[in-house]
Nucleic acid binder design. Structure first.
Lengths: 161, 161
DNA sequence: TTATATGCAAAAGCTTTGCATGGGT
DNA sequence: ACCCATGCAAAGCTTTTGCATATAA
């Protein structure tokens, strides 16, 4: 049995991203000769549903546990595998906790932290990507991945000079 | 007594950056009402000399210890203070270790990791900075800080398409 | 059937904290 | 003198690892 499962449509979700990711996850996991055990399946299912924003291993473990299976050890192991297979993005936070989210096979995004609330928002910007590509060229590197984290506070009218 | 100390010129070092940083560190530490104890002075001195590249708390502790004073606890405390005062950049690595380097009062840089060797290089790029400023504007944020980490492998002639 | 996946519990590693002592101003 | 800074040791966290058991293929 593979990792592709059926879901009802969830309100507010990008169903096509979820399906694309699930299809790719299935392909790569199967291709790597990995089996569909309870923990691995649980993590993949859970992330396909709820993994479009950064989630800690703790949160993922809770989510998987709520659906019956999973343990911290297995979740960490599965997260490592998925990351190595390029199926997840990983951001190491200032709090010493690693957070993961599903990697969109087509295009990606970055994160901005609102320092007044701690809230994390996603954004994407082609001009930024282009600038990064240019840097890679200038440095003579073939870039395999990159992270951008912005931190800021809402611009009040009073802030504008 | 302040935190500004005298040093001989070190080969391969950017003496002006070191001095600028030391001056600003002295100003901000004194301004914050902090005292020049052995550990704090040791960390500031050590970083002024050797802190232009990312260093772990462990490495900093070793460096400070080699000069007589310092303990892990104090180093962590001092590093936090310096970071809060905006005197250090901090990067949280994939290995779960936080690394620090002195923040240049004028201009800053980012890092690129050579995935074949693990080696970290610094770079700066005005076009990238400009793109980031534009993103902040577009999102309605006043950016307080940002990190960029690139990962890649040396571009071989064969890679070029 | 056979190698792999899982889960518990213990271990490991970085970082923080409590507390008594030493030191700056 | 007074309060801050320091250092040791213990505690707190996330993450990793060992090992016996369960399970996918």
């Amino acid at each position: 049995m593979g990792f592709i499962l059926t879901y009802g449509t969830l309100a507010g979700m990008d169903a096509s991203l979820r399906d694309r990711w699930l299809a790719q996850a299935d392909r790569r996991l199967t291709g790597a000769g990995l089996r569909a055990g309870a923990a691995r399946t649980g993590v993949v299912e859970f992330l396909a549903r709820d993994g479009q924003c950064l989630l800690s291993a703790q949160e993922i473990t809770d989510g998987v546990r709520a659906r019956g299976a999973g343990s911290a050890a297995s979740v960490y192991r599965v997260l490592d595998e998925l990351f190595e297979l390029g199926l997840l993005h990983r951001v190491d936070g200032r709090d010493g906790v690693a957070r993961f989210e599903i990697a969109d096979p087509e295009g990606h995004h970055h994160h901005v932290v609102d320092e007044t609330t701690g809230e994390v928002r996603a954004f994407s910007d082609e001009r930024l990507e282009e600038a990064i590509r240019a840097v890679g060229d200038r440095l003579g590197l073939r870039l395999t991945s990159h992270d951008v984290i912005l931190r800021g506070v809402p611009a009040q009218a009073a802030d504008v000079d």
